[in-house]
C-alpha cells in the first residue's frame, strides 16, 4: 500500500474514532464534579485498613491481584528483552575500553547524586503507604541510581557494582515472594493477597498491613528488572562487537 493510500485509510479511521470519542465524552458525567463512585468505595476501604495512601491501598490491597499480573508483565518483558538481545551468531563480547570524553563536572555531579538517589529511592519505597510513591516509583529511582555510574563515564565501575546475576535473582525472587505473600492470605483462610498482616496505627510507618511489605517486594523487583533490562541494551551498545556485515543492497 502506498503511503498516500495508507494516510487516506488512517484519515477515515481517525475521523470515525474522533466522532465516536466525541459522542462518548458528551455522554459522560461532567468533568470535575464530586460524583466519583469508585472513590466513594475505595477511600473508606483504604481507611479501614489504615492505609494513608489510597492509591497504594488500591494497588497493593484492593486490587493486589492486578498488581501481581503487572509484576508478571514486567518479569516477562525482562525475559523477552534478554532473550532478544543475547549475543547472536558472530558477535563477541569485547572488553570495554575507556573512550570518549566526560566533563569533570558531569562526573562530580553523578558521584554526588549517586548516594542521594539511592536514599530517595529507598525512602520512596519505604513510605509508599504513607506519602506519594511506592514500590514501582521507588524501584525505578533505585535502578536509575546505579546508572549514574555510567553517566560518570565509567562503564567498568558500573559493571563491577552491578553483578548482574544478583539483580536477576532479585527480580525473580521478589516477583515470586509477591505471590508467596498472597498465598499466606490464602493459608489463613482470608483469600489470595488478602491484607492479613497486623494493621498497625494509621499514618505511622508500621501501618497498612501487607501494603508496605508488598511495596518493598515490588521495589526490589522493579529495581532488579530495570537494571537487568538496561544491562541488555548496554551490552548491545557497548559490550559487543558485530562481525563485519555485508550491507544488503536489495
Amino acid at each position: 500500500m502506498s503511503r498516500r493510500a495508507r494516510l487516506l485509510v488512517f484519515g477515515l479511521g481517525a475521523a470515525g474514532l474522533a466522532v465516536m470519542f466525541a459522542f462518548a465524552v458528551a455522554g459522560m458525567p461532567p468533568f470535575g464534579t464530586s460524583e466519583h463512585l469508585y472513590r466513594d468505595l475505595a477511600v473508606p476501604a483504604a481507611l479501614q485498613h489504615r492505609t494513608a495512601n489510597v492509591v497504594s491501598s488500591v494497588n497493593f490491597d484492593q486490587r493486589a491481584l492486578d498488581t501481581l499480573g503487572e509484576e508478571v508483565i514486567l518479569l516477562s518483558s525482562v525475559i523477552g528483552t534478554a532473550a532478544l538481545l543475547r549475543p547472536t551468531r558472530g558477535e563477541v563480547r569485547r572488553p570495554t575500553t575507556r573512550g570518549g570524553h566526560v566533563s569533570d563536572s558531569t562526573t562530580l555531579v553523578s558521584y554526588l547524586l549517586l548516594p542521594v538517589t539511592v536514599l530517595i529511592g529507598l525512602d520512596v519505597v519505604a513510605h509508599g503507604h504513607l506519602t506519594p510513591g511506592g514500590g514501582f516509583q521507588g524501584g525505578v529511582v533505585l535502578a536509575t541510581a546505579v546508572h549514574l555510574l555510567y553517566l560518570a563515564g565509567r562503564y567498568e565501575s558500573l559493571e563491577r557494582l552491578r553483578p548482574l546475576t544478583w539483580y536477576v535473582w532479585t527480580e525473580g525472587l521478589s516477583a515470586a515472594s509477591f505471590a508467596v505473600i498472597g498465598l499466606v492470605g490464602l493459608a489463613q483462610g482470608s483469600g489470595f493477597l488478602a491484607n492479613v498482616a497486623p494493621l498497625g496505627s494509621f499514618q505511622s510507618l508500621l501501618s497498612a498491613g501487607t501494603v508496605p511489605i508488598l511495596n518493598v517486594v515490588t521495589g526490589a523487583a522493579v529495581a532488579g528488572g530495570g537494571v537487568v533490562l538496561l544491562a541488555q541494551f548496554f551490552g548491545q551498545a557497548i559490550g559487543t562487537t558485530r562481525p563485519p556485515t555485508r550491507r544488503s543492497t536489495s
Binding site: 466519583h36 472513590r39 477511600v43 494513608a52 489510597v54 492509591v55 506519594p132 514501582f136 499514618q203
Partner: peptide, 25 residues
Amino acid sequence: APVFSPGSTPTSDVVDPVVQAMALT
C-alpha cells in the same frame, strides 16, 4: 490528592484514586 500523609486529616473530597492506580499500571 488521595494521599492522607501524616499530619493531614482524611476527607472524602479527593480525586479518584482508582483511576490514578490504573494510570500507574
